[in-house]
Design a protein around this nucleic acid. Structure first.
Length: 272
DNA sequence: TCGCTTGTTGATGG
DNA sequence: GCCATCAACAAGCG
């Protein structure tokens, strides 16, 4: 689940269910806790009050009136409140009990991602420093400037968290499909018009994706809605979607709407 | 048993 | 140094 849009939802969820509450107890699976022992996490959080959360890319930043809790959701992470789901689950890796009586659970089936606790700005910057600007808020000028400094596959760039923070495999396919750019297009072969379209489309897709919870069932005209279904057709032109590998990940695209520029398809990377 | 999965990292090779 | 690919991490599903 978790890409930028999902983590934005977690941010609102955390704000609703944890911000302003005081920690009464902590349980954590030691294998998901990346930079502390369970005892250290507990003493860092106990009696602390959570403040409003923040998000950078796919990271959820949860400050307290003391240290800051950082959550990364990997591929299968989720947040659950006891107010909505009364029973605990075997994949709950972190449970925070509040003096108010309810509890927040960080659930993660596969243990990609994890939990960090940081005590100062340096420690926090050390973890988040490598990230590029957040994909939801980057303006056109900076986007074009960064793109201008980069070569290689366009999908790899969109998903590179040091280039832009927040876009994963599904959103990258969605943005490229809506922008009508073939995922294997090399950045150096993108026209100025395509570069601007890419930014405009990314902005629109991300804004619409964060409007509510789980955009995939709501956005029926999107690629994401049919992505991965057998014999899926392009929601725009109804040609059969194709599947390939780009940037090391399974990639769906429409061979009719998303054409590879000639210079990319025939002699990509070759010398003149 | 194998292949596949919305993420990240490190090794390797061109 | 830059970029692409692949294995590993981990757990579940078909």
């Amino acid at each position: 689940m978790p890409e930028l849009a999902d983590v934005e939802h977690f941010k609102r969820f955390f704000s609703r269910h944890a911000a302003g509450k005081r920690v009464a107890g902590v349980w954590v699976d030691p294998t998901i806790l990346r930079n502390a022992t369970p005892d250290a996490l507990e003493s860092a959080l106990l009696r602390r009050r959570f403040e409003e959360p923040d998000r950078l890319g796919k990271w959820l930043i949860c400050p307290t009136d003391g240290p800051v809790l950082l959550l990364h959701f990997g591929m299968t992470g989720d947040l659950i409140s006891s107010q909505e789901g009364p029973t605990r689950h075997r994949h709950d890796r972190l449970i925070i009990e509040f003096v108010e009586g309810d509890e927040l659970r960080y659930r993660n089936m596969r243990k990609l991602g994890g939990v960090w606790i940081v005590h100062d700005e340096d420690e926090r910057a050390g973890l988040l420093q490598p990230l590029g600007p957040d994909a939801l808020s980057i303006d056109r000028g900076e986007f074009l400037a960064r793109l201008g400094r980069r070569r290689g596959g366009v999908k790899a760039a969109l998903m590179d968290q040091t280039f832009l923070a927040g876009i994963g495999n599904i959103l990258a396919d969605e943005i490229l499909w809506q922008a009508r750019v073939h995922p294997k297009t090399r950045i150096e072969n993108l026209s100025d018009q395509q570069r601007r379209t890419l930014h405009t489309t990314m902005r629109r897709v991300l804004r619409q994706a964060v409007e509510g919870y789980d955009y995939i069932p709501r956005r029926r005209s999107w690629l994401s809605h049919v992505r991965g279904m057998p014999d899926a057709a392009c929601p725009r032109c109804h040609r059969r979607l194709e599947r390939t590998v780009a940037a090391g990940r399974t990639t769906y695209f429409c061979p009719s709407c998303q054409r590879l520029p000639r210079s990319s398809s025939s002699r990509a990377g070759a010398s003149p």
